[in-house]
């Protein structure tokens, strides 16, 4: 067990190191002068300030020191939590900017992924047993998964936001408010959160439901189900087994999904102008802000790795077959 976890941890650590290294390489080995190309986009009127920025970034990149020293210095900064200073929001530290965006992204992603997974699995399991429900869940599910995300998001924004006028369609909170711990601000947060959340939730729901339905139907045809039926076991028991076994591929699916959530969140945040990491990435790209890009990239990598690690552990707990493999396995 611990050997298995240790091995997994090692792989994740390696992934992290590689990600950081690539992250470090990209601006340095790109053609052109990264400092110049960054600053050319920065709208700084004051030449004195521009000179200060130029000095700072040249210093950070440390072009006059040997490569390996640059690399070690980069790691040193990283471990101290120093991700550099943003260009577009100079002189704010990148870490602060990212930490400001992360809660929004998490508040969007985690509930959307987890709730759609739970609800989708429930609906799918239910559909597998009720003909009537199956006849509705299946087509609706297919429509949902086939629908381009943009289209759904715009449809939601248009119907609930613009036509019905009940929900705001842009931003993380009302532009007339400042972040503070008040009921007014929190309710503004919540109303702004609903639409982007809903769009992600709905899109993911159909896929989970269909997957679960198919898996359960497959499990109910499995040999052990037939055997139990022949021995007169009630369908409640057989369904319980089928549900549990059908969950295993769904858990793997969740792990895979967690790896690709970034793109999902990116789109959502852009459509709804939601102030999370996705929007930040877009802004950083537009402004050639390498430091912000680097920082967000690292955060995303770490997030995905942590999520996968959790799934690994969960999987070990629910599937005896992985446990057997871990301990070396009997015949």
């Amino acid at each position: 067990m611990w050997r298995y976890i240790g091995r997994k941890l090692f792989v994740y650590l390696l992934t992290f190191v590689i990600a950081v290294t690539i992250n470090w390489m990209i601006p340095r080995f790109m053609p052109g002068d990264p400092v110049r190309s960054m600053l050319s986009r920065a709208s700084v009127g004051n030449p004195e300030a521009l000179q200060r920025m130029n000095d700072y970034y040249t210093g950070v990149f440390g072009f006059d020191t040997p490569l390996h020293e640059q690399y070690l210095a980069f790691w040193g900064g990283l471990l101290r939590g120093d991700l550099g200073v943003s260009v577009m929001l100079y002189p704010q530290p990148v870490l602060d900017i990212i930490l400001r965006s992360v809660p929004y992204t998490l508040a969007l992603l985690l509930p959307a992924i987890i709730l759609s997974w739970i609800v989708g699995n429930r609906i799918g399991a239910f559909a597998a047993r009720k003909k009537l429900l199956d006849n509705t869940v299946l087509p609706v599910g297919y429509v949902l998964t086939a629908m381009p995300y943009m289209w759904l998001a715009l449809l939601l924004a248009w119907s609930l936001g613009i036509v019905a006028g009940v929900l705001p369609t842009s931003g993380g909170y009302s532009p007339t408010l400042r972040p503070e711990f008040s009921w007014l601000f929190i309710s503004s947060l919540i109303t702004h959160w609903i639409l982007p959340f809903l769009s992600m939730f709905i899109v993911a729901l159909g896929g989970w439901a269909i997957g679960m339905r198919n898996m359960i139907i497959y499990e109910l045809e499995a040999d052990y189900s037939n055997y139990l039926q022949a021995l007169g076991a009630p369908s409640r028991l057989i369904r319980r087994y089928a549900f549990r076994n059908a969950m295993l591929p769904q858990i793997t699916g969740l792990a895979v999904q967690l790896g690709t959530v970034l793109s999902g969140a990116l789109l959502t945040e852009i459509v709804f102008n939601y102030p999370g990491l996705g929007t930040l990435i877009l802004q950083a790209l537009n402004n050639r802000d390498f430091f912000v890009l680097q920082g967000t990239f690292l955060f995303v990598v770490v997030g995905v790795l942590i999520a996968n690690f959790i799934i690994d552990i969960v999987y070990v707990l629910v599937d005896p077959r992985t446990r057997v493999q871990m301990t070396g396995g009997a015949a």
């Binding site: 040999d223 052990y224 037939n226 022949a230 021995l231 076994n245």
Partner: peptide, 23 residues
Amino acid sequence: MVPLRYHEISLIPQYAMSALNPT
């Protein structure tokens, strides 16, 4: 048939190798 199954009539299936719930 349910009351008869297992109590009165039982089966060792052709697929006994996979007749047990793996989890």
